[in-house]
Design a protein around this nucleic acid. Sequence first.
DNA 1: ATAAGGCTTCCAGTGACTGTAAGGTCAAGA
DNA 2: TCTTGACCTTACAGTCACTGGAAGCCTTAT
Lengths: 131, 131
Amino acid sequence: MNIGDVSRQSGLPAKTIRYYEEIGLITPQRSANGYRVFREQDLHKLAFIGRARALGFGIEDCRGLMKLYEDTDRSSAEVKQIAEEHLTEIDRKIVELTGMRQTLTRLVHACAGDDRPDCPILADLSAPPAI
Amino acid sequence: MNIGDVSRQSGLPAKTIRYYEEIGLITPQRSANGYRVFREQDLHKLAFIGRARALGFGIEDCRGLMKLYEDTDRSSAEVKQIAEEHLTEIDRKIVELTGMRQTLTRLVHACAGDDRPDCPILADLSAPPAI
DNA sequence: ATAAGGCTTCCAGTGACTGTAAGGTCAAGA
DNA sequence: TCTTGACCTTACAGTCACTGGAAGCCTTAT
């Protein structure tokens, strides 16, 4: 299977698939003309990576998870630890974004958004009130 | 004022302040020995940028907001539009992260996290159930 | 005089791609 | 047979907002 078909099947851009090969996540074979040839196991790996990425895991986490997946002697504790650390990071980001959202929502609501120059948003950025 | 003092006052790393000069956000003067000399207005700008960045605005948004701040003929509508677009983006990220969090929480709870290899997390990454 | 600390520039690296250019390969149709 | 167009290849640069490090000048205190 060529990279175009794999791209369509996996939903990953061909560029991304080449990149994953470059960093050693997958190692497709090559045909005589130099084209990459993907087998079932490559497709499976790409789907695995795609789903892990969609859950926000970083590339190195994906590498680790794939390694654990292939190691049938792993302990589920190792997997769970990676996932829990990632979950903590997600929670941290949500908290950070929620704080931004709260402040920004307040400012946007306070701003008339008309032709006049008076703007609580700029006023706050310039010198926020001590709350 | 030298860059070290400005860094301590603003809470921004000196590296970051130099970077902000490089991309034209601030233009501190120079003393005879080549050191950057920061005036009150530079401090004010850096504080403005710092707060906008803390609300998640990108550098180009910061540039635009500063330009509007300095233009006393602006309309608050222009400011509000930038803020609202950013707010939409923040909401999008929160939704994305919340979805990840939900799936990941479910998987982490389903995983025993012990010495055995059975792991619902890897099972889901490998072939998620059609929900 | 020297040592410590602060300042300078320049270059490279981060993460995870993405864009672009220049060119080789293949299958179908005129 | 030729050509067109779709597909593939590599290599290099760019993204975003810094961050790290090296090499070297400047200042201040001892």
